[in-house]
Amino acid sequence: MRAIVPIKQILDPTGFAVHRRLERIFINREDYIINPNDKNALEETLRLKDAHGVEVIALSLGEPRVDDALREALAMGADQAFLLTDEAFAEADAAAAALILAKAIEKIGDYDLILTGQRAMDTGASQIGPRLAEYLGLPQVLEVREVSGLSNGKLRAKRNWKGGYAEVEVGLPVLLSIAPQANEARYPHGARIMNAYREWEISTWGLADLGLAEEELSPLIGLRRKAFPPERTFGELITGAPGEAAKELAQLLREVGSWKLESGG
């Protein structure tokens, strides 16, 4: 069985600070990480590899530096990686990115599962998975918190649903989006990280390799401007020793409302 995991590399949010009043973003350190939720998707796929021997293929679209994200995926345990990079891909919005990824997935072919993260941390969007499923004509199960079974061409999963969860069954091939609480992604072994750089080959595909024309990638959505949350006014800060602070807070709570207190308790 073969599973394909598209991952996205994003700017590490701990490396920049947003100044609301100046309406500016200060980049202190330009580092890139794998979108944390995509790592959950990768982890869930690697668990399927451990349990069912599923072949894991990582895929990423972006600038050549995305190579690092794919090496990390290989170090974590992916079997193969493909880098989709081309100057024509630079302006890709969600629809164009989905098209590029879908063409690559078709080219890889013979897949049973596609696993994506539920949400991209940078854009906050959760479009790529369902767009891929639509393009490829696949059923989808979103917000999966656990893949609970995989046998006889069928998959069982628990997905977040209406405040609880639903257990569902679906035939393969299928696209899953993995919820952040599904798992804790593994850390790659040091030796595997070195091997990922020394020994693994990453195939690179561009516009022509995927049989795409530049016109097909014209963006449908454009950025007008950035906006910043309003600077909020500080309330009162209670300072001083914890004992004093708790006393003051208890007093204030009694003043703002008569909270029903459990007697004695």
Partner: peptide, 27 residues
């Protein structure tokens, strides 16, 4: 969170809550 709070306490909640509970119960 302090920017939207009417009252803020910069301290470990694990330390503050038990103290607050005993203050509330005493009062």
């Amino acid at each position: 969170i302090f920017k939207v709070a009417d009252i803020g306490i910069v301290s470990d909640p694990k330390e503050i809550i038990p103290l607050l509970l005993s203050e509330l119960r005493a009062g």
